[in-house]
Amino acid sequence: MTAYVLRRLWQIIPTIAGVILLIFFLFNWVGGDPAMVLAGKISNPEQIANIRRQLGIDEPYWYQLWVFVKQVFTFDFGRSWSTNEEVSRILITRVGPTLTIMIPVLIITTSLAVVFSIMVAYVRGTLTDRMIMIVCTVAMSVSFLVYIIVFQWLFGFILGWFPVQGWSESFGKNLGYYAPLPIMLAVFVGLAPELRLYRSFFLDEINQDYVRTARAKGVPEKSVMLKHVLRNAMIPILTNVGIALPGIFVGSFLLEVFFSIPGLGREIITAVNRSDFPVIKAVTVYLAVITMFINLLVDVMYKVVDPRVSFK
């Protein structure tokens, strides 16, 4: 176990190096001189000169890379090119609102999808099953944008059940007043694809030999599903949640834009709009690192659900 974790940590090093290289290649090499990028966006030549000096633009590429690596490990990406706010400060203050939306979304969507998909898998092959699958396919085909536009208009403007947009300083008010509509939207949209996916996980398991054994033992059909099948299907479901987990930091960017939530997602969109490279670079590198550690954690947690996993 310890050896396994150590080996995985060891393997993370080249991946982090790769992420740094990729970002450097993209922003410094392809992106080029900030003077060109910022032409027309910042009119103050002194500020541009400052940025160029800071990044070592006139030095060779290896030196620029060294500057970037130093930025990564000292958590100091300097200041935003457009607002002059410190990048580290931007990251810290924007994470909260994003997680306020996305953690409830992840929990509610996953649990609803598991419950519904096991019910649909139980009645597999019936008309109900086929109807639900078709509804899901159609629901998945409508753009997220359309859902947001219509829901915001319907529940915000027309019915007035929820605030159209906004955010406050108090966590309680955010969660109880501003967040419900975005959360509901994200759950509504996320449910259909997950339902389809989890149903296929359950069906895969139902066709396994051990299910036939359970039936041959006289296990009632309901406990075949809830005990034998569910326990096995949790393995791919956990994998799927593990893959989705890092996404919660930026996943809600559209919602944040529409509902005016000051989160990380909206910050990135703004940064892309304003070519605010330091913010994008910092978010990308740090989220990649977080992702790697979450993946490691998920792999270790596998052991809990799948006894076949060994840490050799």
Partner: peptide, 9 residues
């Protein structure tokens, strides 16, 4: 290792 949306952006 970079979340997909972020990579696109």
């Amino acid at each position: 290792s970079i979340p997909y949306i972020l990579l696109i952006l």
